[in-house]
Design a protein around this nucleic acid. Sequence first.
DNA 1: AAGTTACACAACCGCGGACCT
DNA 2: CAGGTCCGCGGTTGTGTAACT
Length: 295
Amino acid sequence: MGRAPCCDKASVKKGPWSPEEDSKLKEYIHRNGTGGNWIASLTKLRCGKSCRLRWLNYLRPNIKHGDFSDDEDRIICNLFATIGSRWSIIAAQLPGRTDNDIKNYWNTKLKKKLMHGLQPYNHHSSKQQQLLFVTASPEAAAPPEAARPLSLQHLSSPHDYSHHYSGSYGSNNSTMSVLSAAAGSRGFLLNGEHHTTITSCLDSGGGGLGLYFGLTAESFVFGGFQQLLEEDHHKALLLAVGAANQLDQQYSAAASSCYDEAKPPLVSLTDGGNGAGGTSTSSSFFYDSYSNNES
DNA sequence: AAGTTACACAACCGCGGACCT
DNA sequence: CAGGTCCGCGGTTGTGTAACT
């Protein structure tokens, strides 16, 4: 019944591929193509799955290695915001790039690049946090000519924010839940209008970094989230807020803030050249969440 | 110079759906 | 139709190396 076993996992080689193995694999593909059964003639060399992966991610012709362009960054960001971590689909939009490549690039570089605008906190110790979703001003969603320069805006209290969520949490999963709850159940304000439709809320795993986004018929929100576990501080930012059909416009504004017990929360909107790794590839601006210091 | 840490990338693992017998 | 494997995918781990102390 069924097919023969994939391979003898105890006897096939694992680990990095040698040039000899690569040339054997290339020769096999050259002779037999990739349409057939990966397992059939390769079981003595490597596990079929391993052969397929090596071919697709490294040996295949026209594979691009090296730095990603700004255009590729933009495509990845926009697609991630739209469909999440569907790397194979994203890779299909980037000729020469593999899903594994894009996944690694996102996890090691791009995510951090996008988070670059976050400033270090001063020290608070709090068990209860508030995440705040801030109204997107019409100025911020306008082209650069209109968006800059925006002056610093002091917010007198957390209640100046349109929506907030209170709760305690300590893991990525619960962080995601909080973000989901905050975004989904409370909604957010965009250009003065209340929106409640959040299509997804993602947590991208380790490192305390997460991402969330939302879509409505008229608007788009794509955000990031940073968690500083040891300080129990959380900071959220929106990377892109604007009309969905404006996403390709080349404008951005970045905001950074720091919280000081003696001062009200500060939100600084600036030209995007210095924010989020200097991204100018999508409409973007940042807001911070508010860390409630009451305990 | 040696040890440690952080980072980037390649490879592996486990799962779900498609497919085969 | 049932039982089994294959394929493709996303998440995770392992490894080499550069940067730092």
